[in-house]
Nucleic acid binder design. Structure first.
Lengths: 321, 321
DNA sequence: AAAACTAAAGTAAACGTTTACTCTAGTCAA
DNA sequence: TTGACTAGAGTAAACGTTTACTTTAGTTTT
């Protein structure tokens, strides 16, 4: 475990060639035989050579700034805890790759082109940012869109498994509570619920919390209204599209005199640390998502064709269901 | 407006000295006369010389990573919209100074020492992170603590002015609604209220929302309870310690049949874009705060003595009061 | 007044790459 | 067979700093 990292010179002398050849091999530049190129590439792999980012920057004259483009503010909130965790993981992996993260608000999208050299788009499932980037031929990666270079999670499958799990636990009357159901990530979650409900032959019920400044508060008010209008409450389970909604639902249920999970089971989605001690939810592997996004971005910068990476979710059973 | 930025060579030849002398002058290194040093410094200022960050990094062998340390999660929420806006502004200014931002969760504080070379501590008014950093002699800047290198805002004065403003508008029975009143930033806001109330000879009333997963929801429930226990509501104004609380209070008031601002005036604090169309609030100049924090950090890295910078707040009058 | 020291300045190497330019040897056309 | 061409390799300059080392000249010591 040497502290000093290996340089292009060492790699070159190990391969018995000049540093120019190594550089050409590594960067896919012409002027080198395929035989030598692949020999250098595998040797580089073997001794775990990582090009020094600063030397590269110095010669190219620019810092590789990656714009972390936050979601449209009122639509999907940029400060949803899920996104904040993602910002954190992304900055870490970007830094490890020698890329410099800068956060950009949705409103400042035009600045991205002048101030950054690539971008990761968060919460871009519905807006037209991908088109703008496409038109500018600006390298970018999206999350959850599934087109171009994109990281997606098997959200639908997560809810699907959850619904089956709840059924096995004896739940029969399940309500799906979505938020901003017109955006595709909400729809994916709903789709998973629908598929399971169909297979189980149960009645399908869903309710949509309209976008508001506070998800928890909106869910709370909606559920309170529910409890007041129909007594007793006709469902034994509320499947929420995210953890914040679940928090509001649980609070509402308790305020209305119901016991969770005895009277009503409540589930979330995301498994955010803030709530993680209580809620049965579907875990998002945020570090893995971030890592995949950064890898895809590197590939974009290397001119490789875009691809879609899928990250799996995992059911986490806790006390709310 | 030349595109190419000026290098140390040009500066040196303009001054008629060698680049070594320039470097020494700029970095406060010994081996140069005071006369020459100040001449170079002022010339450098004049032609707006900015040292190339990448060359510096290359020679020093390390990237200047700045840890953006998020607040303790359950205590002050790392995803409070105020902080998210701050992250954004901070990454921008750090990048402009050639520093690389990486977000760190409160839990990962130990990683900071191995992965970063300086830090900005957000929401560090109560926890012991400053002490840890002090002990490690690790360069850092805090927000709102007022000790060491720190950016503070005149929060108390903001609420003070707001209270006077409301009084002028004819309001007499004002309730202050704080959140986590044991943390110093909440206390500063309360202090401003108290001072004004004392001067005006009014009755002092304050209520504290205990920390919960959702500020808006907690405020909402607390106000609903208020409305139910005492009818009619004994206050004509609710001064909230932040915008999120105000959202909950306004919603609660409307649900309880009160009109805002006719029956009850409600004010916030922070002036976050998400709410900015409606709420009378106290504006925080987030870009200026971020810039000041980054400047202080640079000074720390240059070995300058720590100082406290104060950023002013501004009353923004809108329709909720 | 010469030797020894020292402060202030300059010179050049180094950091780890990329790339323009040069060299070599093999291939091809005439 | 020779000259022109070319693919594949090497050499060295460049990017903009910092810093170890050297030089210069002024000051002190004896």
């Amino acid at each position: 475990m040497s502290n000093k990292s290996v340089t292009i010179h060492e790699l070159a002398s190990l391969a018995g060639v000049s540093i120019a050849s190594v550089s050409r091999a590594l960067n896919g530049k012409p002027g080198i035989s395929e035989a030598l190129r692949s020999r250098i590439l595998s040797l580089s792999e073997e001794i775990n050579y990582k090009p020094n980012v600063m030397a590269r920057q110095l010669i190219s004259g620019k810092t590789p700034v990656v714009a972390l483009c936050m979601p449209p503010s009122p639509y999907e909130f940029s400060d949803r805890p899920y996104f904040v965790h993602l910002y954190q993981a992304l900055t870490l992996y970007l830094h490890r790759k020698g890329l410099v993260p800068v956060l950009f608000a949705y409103e400042n999208i035009e600045d991205v082109f002048s101030q950054a050299s690539s971008a990761i788009l968060l919460g871009a499932t519905e807006d037209d940012r991908p088109e703008i980037f496409e038109r500018q031929k600006f390298p970018y990666v999206t999350l959850e869109t599934g087109v171009g270079a994109s990281v997606v999670t098997d959200e639908a499958n997560g809810v699907y498994k959850l619904t089956h799990y709840l059924f096995k636990k004896g739940r029969k009357k399940m309500l799906f509570l979505g938020e901003n159901i017109d955006i595709s990530t909400s729809q994916a979650r709903l789709r998973g619920y629908r598929k399971a409900i169909g297979e189980l032959g149960l009645e399908e019920n869903f309710d949509n919390v309209s976008r508001q400044v506070s998800s928890s508060l909106s869910a709370y008010r909606q559920m309170i209204a529910h409890f007041q209008s129909s007594e007793p409450f006709p469902y034994d389970t509320v499947i929420c599209a995210n953890d914040e909604l679940a928090v509001g639902v649980i609070q509402a249920a308790e305020d209305a005199g119901y016991k969770v999970p005895e009277d009503i089971s409540v589930t979330g989605f995301d498994d955010l640390p803030r709530f993680s001690n209580k809620i049965t939810t579907i875990h998002q592997d945020i570090p893995k998502i971030a890592e995949a996004a950064v890898d895809l971005l590197s590939e974009q910068l290397d001119g490789l064709p875009p691809r879609v990476v899928e990250v799996m979710t995992r059911l986490v059973s806790r006390e709310s269901a």
